[in-house]
């Protein structure tokens, strides 16, 4: 009856579930924190944020390995198997409205929200795939907004495109942060770090602290991008681009500039 594939999952159910638990923290959760911290650097100004993005993109040709190996695949695994887990359960908060049961249910709801949000967010900023026709299509529908060499201005524009965007991002990020903080708490039980009710209470406080901290970082980033003067930012980014290319800090690649920035640079060249 069982195909060998489902047998594989059954046989390694423990390992897979533990990997799922682990992947939520490492690398997915850790990446999320780094990502939000990077974004929050916008509060220091365009340069600070752009420099951090340069640093990431200085990986150049091996960037995709890092992206897929440490971000996309673990994330897809965590999300995909998360959906499987949710399908194998039956929430009952209406009958048993205990705090822990609500936390359990919220973990699942925020998981689904996070899945939708991250799916949209990656399309919105990154565009999912960097393949010719898809990229054109994504741009056409207002997606794939982020250009790494115009990091602040394109992110700012994306955030400022409609008033709903920051609200949507806030909800999405909040879901992710809850999911991470509560996930760390359940992970501690799953792996047997905190065992007694008292220890679990202490862990709850610690995890709530972690969640609060990450949320502050996230709000900082959001405020930073929403209040950014994107035109000025773009000018500064173009300057930085040209200088950085000159001194060899980054590899020249106009693809990583936004369309308007590319145009501006072309125009400048023509003038010269």
């Amino acid at each position: 009856m069982d195909s060998s594939e489902t047998n594989f999952f059954r046989k390694h159910e423990f390992l897979i579930r533990r990997l799922h638990s682990l992947s939520g923290l490492l690398p997915v959760g850790a990446y999320m924190i780094v990502h939000l911290l990077t974004n929050a650097s916008i509060l220091n100004g365009v340069e600070s944020f752009q420099n951090l993005v340069y640093q990431i993109h200085s990986l150049g040709k091996i960037l995709w390995i890092v992206e897929w190996g440490f971000i996309f695949l673990p994330l897809l695994f965590h999300a995909g198997f998360g959906v499987v887990i949710i399908m194998g359960s039956k929430s009952n908060t209406s009958q048993y409205s205990y705090v822990a049961n609500w936390r359990y249910r919220m973990q699942r709801i925020t998981g689904m929200v996070a899945l939708l949000f991250i799916g949209f967010h990656v399309l919105h900023m990154h565009g999912w795939f960097h393949v010719g026709f898809w990229k054109t299509f994504a741009h056409a529908i207002g997606m794939a907004q982020f250009s790494p060499y115009n990091a602040a201005s394109t992110a700012g524009e994306a955030m400022q495109s409609t008033i709903l965007m920051p609200v949507f991002y806030f909800v999405g990020i909040a879901a992710c942060v809850y999911h991470l903080a509560n996930g760390v708490w359940t992970m501690g039980i799953t792996w047997g770090v905190w065992t007694t009710p008292q220890a679990q209470k202490r862990a709850t406080i610690a995890c709530a602290g972690l969640g609060g901290f990450v949320m502050i970082v996230a709000i900082s980033a959001l405020v930073g991008f929403c209040t950014l003067d994107t035109d000025k930012a773009q000018e500064r980014e173009i300057e930085m681009y040209q200088e950085s290319v000159n001194v060899g800090r980054i590899i020249e690649n106009e693809e990583k500039l936004s369309k308007p920035a590319q145009k501006k640079i072309k125009r400048e060249r023509r003038r010269k």
Partner: peptide
């Protein structure tokens, strides 16, 4: 096995004998 547990902790809340089930699980 134990990996299916989702830490909703209803078990310990409804146990008529007040057994520390979640402690055992952890």
């Amino acid at each position: 096995g134990i990996q299916i547990c989702g830490n909703a902790q209803n078990c310990v809340a409804v146990c008529p004998k007040e057994i520390p089930l979640t402690t055992s699980i952890a």
